[in-house]
Amino acid sequence: MICLSNINKYYHQGKNAYHVLKNIDLVVRAGEFVAIMGQSGSGKSTLINIIGFLDDHFDGDYTFEKKNIAQMSRQDCAHYRNRNVGFVFQNFKLINNLTVKENIAIPLLYAGQSFSQTEVKIEQALNQVGLHGYQNQYPLNLSGGQQQRVSIARALINKPKFLIADEPTGALDSQTSKEIISLFTQLNLKSSMTIIMVTHDLAVAQKSQRIIRIMDGTIASDQETGYESRLINTNGT
């Protein structure tokens, strides 16, 4: 589904150019749950921003379902993002002066749906993340875990092809982290959602199918965690 080949990414600061991603080759198949680990500043966010169509300034080829992303216009890129990716960020990224319902509705509205069409879908998405009846709450009245569930509901609302999660548990305590990760594994197992998640936490990473380690902008290792261990862990929580 996702195919990166020979990706290079530079940041320019004044006269200096930082080579942040170096010759990255990566294939992610539909239904995979991938964890990306690595030290701070190693280029994890940069990599998944490219995968999630947030960043189209890179060298190399990115084909998503046989379509070349690098050649897309900004407008098409936004459209693609809206239809194909759901984002979950470390600090939730909810709009605080909108209600839960309104926050979740945003991707639907940009997909061209009217408010009246969104109601039922929002309710379903909230049920899916275990926040039944929270439609009219404001984000700041919710706990961190609840806010992250809202942002997951928002990420799922347009039935995307894959989820991008950049340190989704980074701002949460360990108990809440477990709940969020269990939500991811369920999504992956039950709905075969493709998930690409950046994390620092090995325990979290081990709930995934495959762990990729990034070091100084290159892929240092790429290992399967093993189906069995996943099952045991999922049942354990």
Partner: peptide, 10 residues
Amino acid sequence: GIRLAVGASP
């Protein structure tokens, strides 16, 4: 930023 990320075009 959030709106752009979830699919708003410029």
